[in-house]
């Protein structure tokens, strides 16, 4: 019985969504896609398919690593700005201001080319155990993207920590919880929950920032599409396909975050 009710509402919803003008619009969109598929050049795809898969993998890897590391950095950054001593709060705030006040592209180039230009002055760097990593491009890409995410998300976490009702923390203290335990059991979970909607937005923005690493010789999906453009002199098709790839990843991200939000009960604690 209840299944039937659900069915009816779903059907109504679909019908409500599929108004006549939408059907026309979808038909036009499909026609454009078909035209693009027929009249544009796609014969290069098989040659670059494997490279593209590797590029997509690299992009997603970079996104996940920098978001996870960046979030781990953002929590203390937000926390010390709300409750920390001044000698921690001021540097944290300065860090967030600098990251948010300058373009990521510039930060990336400063780290990669700027630091690189300093290497010849310090020959011992080449003997150090870090050298095999310093030689490659990806550590700089990961570092720049992580710091950037931490800067933006640190600001969000600051607001989230400050937004948790005082009463909650006082109640926890009345239970005799230690400061560490309050943070772990009450404060952090509630702040994270508050930050979750912006977290989704910030992560999509982070995805949109990843193609910048192509300028420091990292081979992500953006750089694969540039390579196709340069080797075949086909201009639009690789870019259109690239836009489609990013839209798909964005859609998946939004979907995953919605699932995550739905899993967490509306009234935590």
């Amino acid at each position: 019985m209840s299944a039937l009710v659900v069915n009816v509402t779903t059907r109504q919803r679909v019908l409500g969504w599929l108004q006549p003008h939408r059907i026309v619009l979808i038909a036009i969109a499909l026609a454009i896609v078909v035209c693009a598929a027929v009249f544009m050049r796609w014969d290069w795809i098989p040659n670059y398919a494997w490279l593209a898969v590797q590029g997509i993998w690299r992009t997603i890897w970079l996104l996940v690593v920098s978001v996870v590391l960046g979030f781990m950095l953002a929590v203390p950054l937000g926390l010390v700005q709300v409750t920390g001593p001044i000698w921690l709060a001021v540097p944290a705030r300065t860090f967030c201001t600098i990251i948010r006040g300058t373009p990521l592209l510039l930060q990336l180039w400063l780290l990669y080319f700027g630091l690189g230009a300093l290497f010849p002055q310090f020959p011992w760097i080449r003997e150090s155990f870090l050298w095999p990593y310093l030689r490659q491009a990806w550590p700089y890409g990961v570092l720049a993207l992580t710091l950037s995410y931490a800067g933006y998300e640190g600001e969000v976490m600051r607001g989230a920590f400050a937004g948790v009702p005082r009463g909650q923390l006082e109640a926890a203290r009345a239970f005799g919880m230690s400061r560490w335990k309050i943070l772990r059991r009450v404060w952090l979970p509630q702040a994270t929950y508050r930050a979750l909607p912006t977290l989704a937005g910030e992560t999509v923005l982070q995805l949109k920032a990843t193609p910048l690493v192509a300028t420091i010789t990292m081979v992500d999906i953006f750089s694969v599409s540039s390579r196709v453009r340069q080797e075949t002199f086909i201009v639009y098709e690789p870019l259109l396909l690239l836009a489609l790839v990013y839209m798909t990843i964005t859609a998946i991200l939004v979907f995953l975050f919605r699932k995550l939000e739905a899993r967490i009960p509306a009234r935590p604690g």
């Binding site: 690189g116 230009a117 010849p120 490659q136």
Partner: peptide
């Protein structure tokens, strides 16, 4: 084989030892 946007940047990374 690393590809750079400009030859200048390739030279720069050669001096950096990358």
């Amino acid at each position: 084989i690393k590809e750079y946007q400009t030859q200048d940047e390739a030279n720069q990374d050669l001096t950096a030892g990358r």
